[in-house]
């Protein structure tokens, strides 16, 4: 832990997303709309990790995300860690889990599905690694998902 503090500066208040596979870091930034954030964003890229080989970490000062913003991240990588920081202390630390339902986040793979032919939000029910379209009832595996 000490070494990490040296590599990426601590924040007073905000959100830390840790254990990001390095090839996903730009996708995570784009899903969280970080190019529109005004506060300080610190990125540790390709850091050494005992468990992952290399990993990346993002610290966003003075910013807290909604569950649905975080749910999108769980679709692209399943083992992200979320830390909420207040007064330099970690007040909450948890894995970012998939919610039971994904609304408006992924595309239905079925071209004959109404969601691909009408301006509307998609809805998928999550059961383990399987996502089921609530409109056409087709299933898609989590690792084959396409984001909208």
């Amino acid at each position: 832990m000490k070494q990490k503090e040296l590599l990426v500066a601590a924040i007073e208040n905000g959100t830390v997303i840790d254990h990001i596979p390095s090839d996903k870091v730009f996708q995570v930034m784009s899903l969280l709309n970080l190019d529109n954030v005004r506060s300080a964003v610190t990125i540790g890229y390709n850091l050494k990790s005992r468990a992952m080989g290399t990993k990346s970490i993002i610290k966003i000062a003075d910013k807290f995300f909604t569950d649905s913003e975080l749910a999108q991240l769980a679709v692209i990588c399943q083992n992200l860690t979320l830390c909420i920081i207040r007064d330099y202390e970690i007040v909450e630390k948890r894995r970012i889990a998939l919610p039971e339902e994904l609304v408006g986040i992924i595309r239905c793979p079925n071209s004959k599905c109404i969601t691909n032919n009408e301006p509307m939000r998609t809805r998928f029910r999550v059961t383990g690694q399987k996502l089921t379209c609530q409109y056409c009832n087709n299933d898609v595996e989590l690792d084959k998902v396409k984001l909208l």
Binding site: C113, I114, T115, E118, C133, Q134, Y135, C136
Partner: peptide, 29 residues
Amino acid sequence: ETLKDTIMMVSNYADIIVMRHYLEGAARY
């Protein structure tokens, strides 16, 4: 015209809509 607009228009006139559609999930929507 979107399906939604057609449904909204017809629902002004009818008490119930029986619908057949070539797209899957159209009835749920």
